[in-house]
Simulated assay, not measured.
Amino acid sequence: MSIETDIKQTTPFKTPYQRVMVNLMFTSNWLVDSQSQVMKPFGLTLQQYNVLRILRGQYPNPVKVSDITERMLDKMSNASRLVDKLVAKKHVLRTECPSDRRAVDVVITEPGLTLLKKIDVHLNEWDEIMRSKLSEEEAVSLSQLLDRLRGSV
């Protein structure tokens, strides 16, 4: 289905650049909504899931809240608040950093790791959906184009 059909637009876009911008925003929102539905049964938001993934990537080493903030996909997220919510759910532990008492170290717990393993099963289904829509070469090419658009390449 075309972006024009999805948003019920009857007049053509003025430029292909406007079309791609709207298409990217629409697709981004679609992906966020879809991923949010995957997280809902696990009692997580996408931002909380992002924090858990960051911590799993560093496990067993602790990560400072400031480092989590730098690595978040959603730069508007309040990492401190997210960590507090994950502590309350017993998915992470928060401790004072021994080398800098103003900083806070965060580490994922065993229950947090177990939860991520359960979520991974559901996200593998997303890999299959993506494989049915894009070849591996197309996925690589699309990622490279998106990197270039953001100015990374």
Rank of each mutant, 00 (worst) to 15 (best):
I129C: 03
D67C: 03
V104L: 13
D100Q: 04
R71H: 02
T69A: 06
V92Q: 00
E96K: 15
P60I: 05
K85A: 11
L86P: 04
T69D: 05
N50I: 00
R81H: 07
N61K: 08
E128A: 11
H122S: 11
Y49F: 13
V121D: 05
E96Y: 14
A79T: 01
L123R: 13
V65T: 05
H122Y: 11
R131W: 06
V51H: 01
Q58N: 08
M72S: 00
E110D: 14
R101G: 07
N78E: 07
L73K: 06
P98A: 13
V83S: 00
L82F: 00
N78L: 02
L86A: 09
E128L: 09
L123C: 12
V63W: 01
L93Y: 04
K85E: 10
T69Q: 11
E125Y: 09
D127W: 06
V107G: 14
K118E: 15
K117E: 13
D67A: 10
R131I: 14
S66W: 02
V106D: 04
E125D: 10
N50K: 10
N78H: 09
G57C: 06
C97I: 00
V121R: 08
P98C: 11
R56W: 01
I108K: 06
S99Q: 14
D127K: 10
S99F: 14
S80L: 04
E110N: 11
H91D: 07
T95A: 15
T95L: 15
H91N: 09
R71K: 12
D120L: 06
Y49A: 02
S77Y: 04
R56P: 03
M130L: 14
P62C: 01
G57I: 06
L93R: 15
A79E: 00
K117T: 12
I119N: 09
V92L: 03
S99V: 12
R81P: 03
V121E: 09
Q58W: 08
K85W: 06
L116T: 08
D100R: 04
Q58Y: 12
E128N: 06
D84F: 01
V121L: 08
R56G: 09
I129H: 08
E70C: 10
P60S: 04
L86Q: 07
V121C: 05
V106M: 06
M72L: 12
V92T: 04
L116E: 06
N61H: 09
I129S: 08
L82Q: 02
L82W: 00
P62M: 02
P60K: 07
L123M: 15
R81F: 08
K75D: 10
I119G: 07
D120H: 15
I54S: 02
E70F: 09
I129M: 11
P62F: 01
M130N: 10
K117H: 09
E70H: 11
D105L: 12
S77L: 05
A103T: 03
S80D: 05
T69W: 00
W126M: 13
E70Q: 14
L93E: 13
L73E: 05
